[in-house]
Design a protein around this nucleic acid. Sequence first.
DNA 1: CGTTGTGTTGAGCCGAATCAACCCCGGTGG
DNA 2: CCACCGGGGTTGATTCGGCTCAACACAACG
Lengths: 261, 261
Amino acid sequence: MTSRVTPHSALRPLEAVVRRLTALSALSDAERELLRGFPIRRERHLPGDLLLAEGALGGRRRFILAGWACRQRTLADGRRQIFSFLLPGDSIACVARTLPEASAVVALTAMETADAQPALDAAQAGDAPGLAYAFRALEALEQRLLLDHMVRLGRQTAYERVAHFLLELQRRLEIAGLGDDQRFPLPLTQEIMGDALGLSIVHVNRILQQLRRDRLIELRSGVAILLEPERLAEIAVFPPPQLRRASAAQSPGGLGDPAPA
Amino acid sequence: MTSRVTPHSALRPLEAVVRRLTALSALSDAERELLRGFPIRRERHLPGDLLLAEGALGGRRRFILAGWACRQRTLADGRRQIFSFLLPGDSIACVARTLPEASAVVALTAMETADAQPALDAAQAGDAPGLAYAFRALEALEQRLLLDHMVRLGRQTAYERVAHFLLELQRRLEIAGLGDDQRFPLPLTQEIMGDALGLSIVHVNRILQQLRRDRLIELRSGVAILLEPERLAEIAVFPPPQLRRASAAQSPGGLGDPAPA
DNA sequence: CGTTGTGTTGAGCCGAATCAACCCCGGTGG
DNA sequence: CCACCGGGGTTGATTCGGCTCAACACAACG
């Protein structure tokens, strides 16, 4: 269904995961191979599927190979708040362990996930220090994204919120190997964006219109294009988060294939 | 200055910490004594003191013995978002370790803190399973409080936000041994509340007025009284979080990772 | 061919921000 | 002792961003 969105998930299912972790930590080639070698017990999910229930105990840890999900909470009167979006390369339920989940995880598109437990066990066992560091960094990054989102909700105008949000998605998706420095898949309805950004559907629509009129973005059939990322960043007021480790050397440049092994 | 606010900090400095942890985990008497016996290297801080800088690496972990602080971020143009309030019994910088902090921690009142490292080390060493569990629960609880705050910001009216916020404070403070089931210290200016709740000073003032007119709360000289907590809870729409362990069952032995096969 | 979900657009309203006074109170210093 | 000052709180008038309601367009799909 979303072959454009997740181009390599069929041939190299863990590609997004490897890219994500590599951006956060210096993985040895051995670790990369270790990661690719685990039995991953793939699973498929449909839009709307509940991947993790609110209040659940000790959810299964999984990697997302393809598709989008979100962490959310629904109030008694139907209002919904989306806390974060989970993209290919992200992991589910790696925070709380023996304690009830504070949010539900729901699939937004068709998805594919893999068992993350073997990799986590290896990291915890001390066999793969690079992996262990990457997982901790992942957790910290998640926290940072949550805080960013909170700033959007509490202290930014709708225009700023949307600008900052789109920038965040672009950066995250580029790292996961989807999209480039201005173009990326955006399989979200305006309702979903509204529930994330604390805005009504109608208002999300108007802001997107405005961003288009201002020639800052284009949106066509599930693909977003940031025409002037720098101006968007100015509008966004506070800098989108550092998604990579600060170190000088990073994964070898090109979008196509990191890690020649 | 705030002797009513922190009545036992002089005689039993760790009282709030012990109470907090006990509410989360079944601590043995030995563990409680262990906790009280650590060298805690107390420190005092003044309102406005920076306890942890944004972007700092590996901050010192400390317990709060007395006084209030907050986690916050300040934007370039001066806007501020407060993410959470840190109360007596809470700990600072227990999440990220080797990674840059995503938020600053700032003292809001005069404070006293203690070194948490000995206790954390003991927990990590496996000497005190109850403590270890408590610390993990503490982290999860913090996460939950963040998400609650996000719901307030994104999906609640000002009136609901304030109601829910006051209820949260009451519950947390009661557990820490400050205040009772409707009365608690509230040393926050309306500006601070505004920066937490995403509202202007003026509007915070009006909402508080309204809550008073509706005979739901009283505010006098740094003390808040919830006249009808149940009605406040109804207004708050979504239930304030579970701050204690669900007394019946928890994990007495399975403190490691549950490993759901 | 209707149906359903998503996007679009207009009209009107309302919640919350802004602007601007003013009050009260606790310093603090002449 | 009083004059002054600054921080916090209170209040009114006005503006405005974003919501609600409502209608319609369009595509995917049965």
